[in-house]
Nucleic acid binder design. Sequence first.
DNA 1: CTAATATCAGCGCTACTGAGATCT
DNA 2: CAGATCTCAGTATCGCTGATATTA
Lengths: 173, 173
Amino acid sequence: MSDYVTGLMADWAREHPGLDTSPMAVVNRILRAGPLLQGLVDPIANAHGLSRKGDLDVLTALRRTGEPYERTPSWLARAVQLTTGGMTNRLDRLEVAGLVTRRPDPSDRRGVLVRLTAHGRAVVDSTLEEALVEQARAIASLTAEERTMLAASLERLLVGLGDRAESSALLAG
Amino acid sequence: MSDYVTGLMADWAREHPGLDTSPMAVVNRILRAGPLLQGLVDPIANAHGLSRKGDLDVLTALRRTGEPYERTPSWLARAVQLTTGGMTNRLDRLEVAGLVTRRPDPSDRRGVLVRLTAHGRAVVDSTLEEALVEQARAIASLTAEERTMLAASLERLLVGLGDRAESSALLAG
DNA sequence: CTAATATCAGCGCTACTGAGATCT
DNA sequence: CAGATCTCAGTATCGCTGATATTA
């Protein structure tokens, strides 16, 4: 039993024998797994009222900062790789849904502070719990050792791509 | 030197100690690597005139079928996971760009056959060659053995997610 | 008559850009 | 005055849905 990329590489080997398609074995599989994994999380987020893409990302970004779960729109925009204009739109929706509140920043009158509500925290916690259960099921076809090595290889790949750790708790708002 | 997900899991360990976030080590890394890898290919496709998302996917799908590089819009829509309505839009652009042609299907007067032009084939071949070079560079931080194991683990993950091989040459138009 | 094919118009969603008001 | 923060309006992209004409 083989996957889509196996067939893909077989096609290229037949149609373009001189081509070294070996990077596809890693790269195309990652590109293909992304939407499949995201497709497991989306219905769970939907069931918790998070119908728009990215809503959960904003809530988890706030949740991970710890009490009082509060940051500026600019900080959130950087955290989820979005322009501040795009963040304004997302926050409008989340505020209407009662998941976050906005208040003037007392220390900078240009700014605003976005805070997770109690309801917002409950939603993000329960959604994430369910998502993790589903994700655990999704990787259950791998052994524990295989998962460990897979995670380690992916980390090295990401570091090679320029990805870097930035603990949310240490970054100023 | 650690990646973004390492910081992510450290945040959750601090803020929600009881939560088993171990699936993130695999799942979130795959979700994060996807856009980074796609970001390597996009500028290359752009440089070859493939400015819209998905254009390259349609061309490679045709290219992999072998001579005469011809399939119906319905077949292409299935190959790239799109509705036929969406495929009509993509084909309109590709036809204007001279990368594909449309002609009536002689064996089914409801249908149309989409064929890669000589120019289209040249574009897809050169784009793919450059993309593969760039992708090889992207995974160069891993050893050959690590790449082999990574590919094998990802394949098992994908099969577990329901992904299956389907050689394009064997599927009727 | 039912089903399949391709196209088209309209809609919804998403994010970006650039302008503007406010403040450091 | 330069630069930062946030919001807003306008724009572009993308794909889907449902209707339509044609044909199997």
